[in-house]
Design a protein around this nucleic acid. Structure first.
Length: 644
RNA sequence: GCCGCGGUAGCUCAAUGGCAGAGCAAUUGCUUCGUAAGCAAUAGGUUGUGGGUUCAACUCCCAUCCGCGGCUCCA
């Protein structure tokens, strides 16, 4: 049986003339010729080979139609006989039976079903919506589609099956650095919230991750802490004039984000990755992209260009893979590392999933693929990148206490590469959550992530790396080996830091942990928009304050001057509210004594007396060798607008 | 996307069918100050948007946008 489904604004049809000797009787109550709005029209042709298999055909037809209707969110289904889809039509009786049964079963699934009369020439008019899923053709076969097995061109249906199976059979463990696997299990009945199998008493955050991932957590709903901070500090804000999940960055936020981008990119250069840039939009009809895309239907932004329909990329994979597939690569070039900082990647996440900086529709993802010779080389490279990613996160300023490792792996890969997996856990230095899949569902055999556990005990992934064994052949990425033979590469997908927005989110959530513990919340020094604030005690000392600022600025250091006609107390208060790490008040005393009083936020506002050369040394140590950018706002506070 | 809650001055919030308000911020003036809030005056509004009910709507109804929580999801 062949079907063509059209998601329509409306369809209207009217029988004109009988097409067969005994056409179906037209029911009087049928309001023929009226518009049926917001419906999924199923043009259908039952074929010769379906005869005798009616039941199986009906079953598969219903399951296909249901899956499409759910995806496009159509509640009305119009079953429309359309024999022209096939050269080998079945007998009319068979076709009518199939359609009637399908109507019955779809109605039982709570769809509103309208069946166009069988055996008539009909005039009809419809308006198809035109989004990517609005037109789909399917071949309905007699054999059942085994879940998890591929059926050609049925990416969407397959994806649902895959997800269902994944949910059903994942096994969860804690893996320690000795290589011991502790199987995790929730209790039953009264004890259903008890997570047994591992002693979490010294690993509270890991337990939170396990609970979050195994989907049994129930916490009191609250807005995450970073949302308040991101606005209060004039870093980032919502932009209601855009699509949800698209943010705007004020000068300070742009600077913080740019510095993290600079740092991650610098580390990728040092690692030997070749930085590239690829388009953000791709053709829906490109053969390599189609199958991959269909695994995740309707999660892309679609755009109509003058001559094609394109989607916005959700990762840098496409651009880099197509580039690599057209490159001539020798075994001597491997591992070949390609890096791109995607500004941006786009995913149309569900509305209710978006929060602050944690989950966005538009985000900045550093993405580094390594093309490797084989699994062995891929493992070696992944181990190297694991150390790199850990170092990146620590240098950015993330506290290791808040990070937990999760490893996902197929059973097969784990059994053959146990030592390698355990080596990652050893390198991490803490036990890890391990999710084991009975077979491979995705394109990778293993992946790991560093997860940040936030103030609401929810986890989100930062850096991640995967061993991809599928895309090389799909995209045609080959290298030539020592014996002049063409072989597919093995691909690693690394994000060395995770999305830049998520890094910012983690830093703010971490500041909140500090605040809860009675400390002053801070950003790392290298990311503080103002690193040192000079506070002249009255307007008389503004010139001296500016001179001091210019001196420190050469370090380099972002210094500003609060020249507003306010009392010192007030200016100090505001510096603290802005999380300025060092505040220097300047007046007669300092000028006479030729030393400075420096207030240190991190030390609960402790004031130390220090001479200029020592202050410079201190600030240089604070800056380390991290990237630096100039002050994002005017030097004088009196000249600054308020954005929030 | 689904269910529930919310949107009032730049910010935080009050006003429950009957004159739209406070604190902070802003502006102006006074104060020139020593490490977390000096004093006063002025200005600030199509109550998210569009429709409806009513003599009268921030308040009730419908739609829609944006945000929050939960579900779901996270390539």
């Amino acid at each position: 049986m062949k079907i063509l489904t059209l998601h329509c604004d409306y369809i209207r049809f009217k029988p004109v003339k009988a097409a067969i000797s005994k056409p179906e009787e037209i029911k009087k109550e049928a309001k023929l010729g009226n518009e049926i709005k917001e419906c999924l029209v199923v043009l259908s042709a039952v074929e010769k080979q379906d005869e005798g298999n009616e039941k199986a055909i009906v079953k598969n037809l219903v399951s296909n139609v249901k899956s499409i209707a759910v995806q496009v969110k159509a509640k009305k289904i119009v079953l429309y006989p359309y024999v022209h889809l096939t050269n080998t039509p079945s007998k009319p009786d068979t076709a009518l039976f199939v359609l009637r049964e399908a109507e019955k079963e779809l109605k039982e699934l709570k769809f509103s079903v309208i069946r166009a009369p069988f055996g008539w020439y009909k005039e009809f008019e419809l308006k198809c919506k035109g989004h990517p899923l609005s037109e789909l053709s399917r071949e309905i076969k007699t054999e059942e589609i085994a879940p998890g097995k591929k059926e050609k061109g049925e990416g969407a249906a397959e994806s649902e099956a895959l997800k269902a199976e994944k949910k059903l059979k994942s096994e969860w463990f804690i893996l320690t650095d000795t290589g011991k696997l502790h199987r995790l299990k929730f209790g039953k009945g009264k004890n259903k919230d008890e997570l047994a199998g591992f002693d979490f008493s010294k690993h509270a955050a890991l337990e939170k991750l396990a609970r979050y991932e195994m989907k049994k957590i129930r916490v009191v709903g609250q807005e995450p802490a970073h949302v308040k901070y991101m606005r209060k500090l004039e870093l980032v804000d919502y932009e209601s004039a855009s699509d949800p999940g698209n943010l705007r960055y004020y000068p300070k936020g742009r600077m913080v984000k740019a510095l993290i981008e600079d740092y991650v990119t610098k580390r990728m250069h040092e690692y030997g990755a070749l930085e590239v840039e690829t388009p953000i939009m791709y053709d829906y009809e490109h053969p390599s992209l189609k199958a991959y895309l269909n695994r995740f239907p309707a999660r892309q932004y679609s755009i109509d260009t003058p001559n094609k329909k394109v989607f916005l990329r959700f990762a840098a994979c496409f651009g880099q893979f197509i580039m690599a597939s057209q490159a001539v690569i020798s075994y001597k070039d491997l591992p070949l590392k390609l890096y791109e900082l995607t500004k941006y990647s786009f995913r149309v996440e569900q509305r209710g999933e978006l929060v602050g900086l944690k989950r966005l529709r538009t985000f900045t993802m550093p993405d580094c693929h390594a093309l490797c010779k084989d699994i062995e080389q891929a493992k070696q490279e992944m181990a190297l990148r694991f150390i790199l990613a850990k170092d990146v996160q620590q240098n950015i300023g993330l506290d290791f206490h808040n990070l937990e490792l999760a490893i996902r792996v197929t059973k097969d890969f784990y059994e053959k590469n146990k030592e390698f997996i355990v080596s990652l856990v050893k390198e991490f230095g803490k036990p890890a959550l391990l999710e084991m899949w009975p077979s491979r569902f995705f394109y990778f055999v293993t992946k790991y992530e560093f997860n940040f556990i936030d103030s609401l005990n929810k986890a989100f992934a930062l850096n991640t790396d995967q061993i991809d064994v599928e895309n090389a052949e799909r995209y045609g990425i080959y290298y030539v080996d020592e014996h002049n033979k063409r072989k597919p590469v093995t691909i690693l997908h690394l994000s060395p830091s995770g999305a830049i927005e998520r890094v910012m989110c983690s830093l703010l959530e971490q500041a909140y942990f500090d605040e809860k513990q009675g400390k002053n919340p801070c950003l790392p020094y290298w990311l503080s928009p103002t690193q040192v604030r000079i506070v002249p005690i009255s307007e008389k000392f503004i010139n001296e304050a500016v001179a001091l600022a210019e001196d420190l600025n050469d370090l380099p250091c972002r210094v500003d001057v609060d020249d507003r006609p306010l009392h010192v107390e007030k200016k100090v208060l505001e510096a603290e509210q802005e999380w300025v790490p060092f505040v220097v008040c300047l007046g007669k005393r300092e000028l006479e004594k030729k030393s400075l009083n420096v207030r240190i936020r991190r030390m609960k506002g402790k004031v130390i007396e220090i001479k200029m050369p020592e202050l410079k040394k201190l600030l240089e140590q604070e800056q380390r060798s991290m990237p630096w950018r100039p002050l994002p706002l005017p030097l004088l506070l009196s000249k600054r607008p308020k954005f929030v």
